[in-house]
Simulated assay, not measured.
Amino acid sequence: MITAIDAKTALVLIDLQKGIMGLPTAHSTEQVLEKSIELIKAFRSKNLPIVFVNVNPLGAKWTQARVEQSTAPKGEEAIEQARLAMEASGFFDLVPQLDVQPDDILITKNTWSAFYNTPLHEILQKLDITGIVLAGVATSIGVEGTARNASEHGYNITFVEDAMTDMHLSAHENSLKSIFPRIGELGTTADVISTLQKN
């Protein structure tokens, strides 16, 4: 349940990019996009910052480590081939419906977290941001990875339940039920907008 949203709060939208939004997910990515656009409009009306995050993990150290399940290309030639194909398909591009504006904050991450090895924390600190509202895809990967680091930095976190989804329903539900309540508050898009309007 959302009890408050800080006066200095940023909306952080995770990986709403063509390649991710085109993957099979547990919930409709159209709904995630629709709710994200509602959040964007609400934050713009309050002149609060909006952070758009996309991911490009190609060649990142973690993608070259031994794992049991990997879809990441390994080796320079394979990475370059993947980069060319993904760029040609627009995989990394944010979906155009987001209507990104010049004053918005753009972050490209190469891991699960939008904070790791990016300037996000420093940018938010310069803006005196104390809270973040989080949404996007995938719940258990980019959203949870970012949330864990945000919690470690001491941000008040609000999770928008109906503006996120995952490739696996069980992973989505685990994040919502077991992880997020321990590091933030949860609510719907309508809850977030209603609380914002009271500020």
Rank of each mutant, 00 (worst) to 15 (best):
A7W: 00
K8D: 15
K8Q: 10
A10V: 11
L11M: 14
G19P: 03
P24F: 09
P24D: 12
A26V: 00
Q31L: 07
V32T: 15
S36V: 14
L39S: 05
L39W: 03
I40R: 13
I40F: 10
L48H: 11
P49S: 08
F52N: 07
F52T: 05
F52V: 06
V55Q: 05
N56L: 00
P57I: 09
L58A: 01
G59T: 02
G59Q: 06
K61C: 02
K61V: 07
T63C: 11
R66M: 05
R66H: 08
Q69I: 14
S70P: 06
T71S: 04
T71E: 01
K74R: 14
K74A: 11
G75Q: 06
E77N: 13
A78R: 06
A78W: 04
I79E: 13
I79Q: 13
A82M: 06
R83W: 02
L84P: 00
L84H: 12
A85S: 11
A88Y: 02
L94F: 12
P96T: 11
Q97Y: 09
L98C: 07
D99W: 02
V100T: 07
P102V: 13
D103P: 00
T111G: 09
A114S: 03
N117Q: 13
E122D: 15
E122L: 12
Q125W: 01
D128E: 15
D128K: 15
G131E: 08
L134A: 10
A138Q: 10
G145I: 10
R148A: 05
A150Q: 03
H153N: 05
N156S: 15
I157M: 09
F159M: 04
D162F: 01
D162G: 02
A163W: 12
A171V: 08
S175E: 07
L176C: 07
S178F: 02
R182M: 09
I183E: 10
E185H: 12
D191T: 01
D191R: 08
D191G: 08
T195F: 06
Q197C: 05
N199P: 01
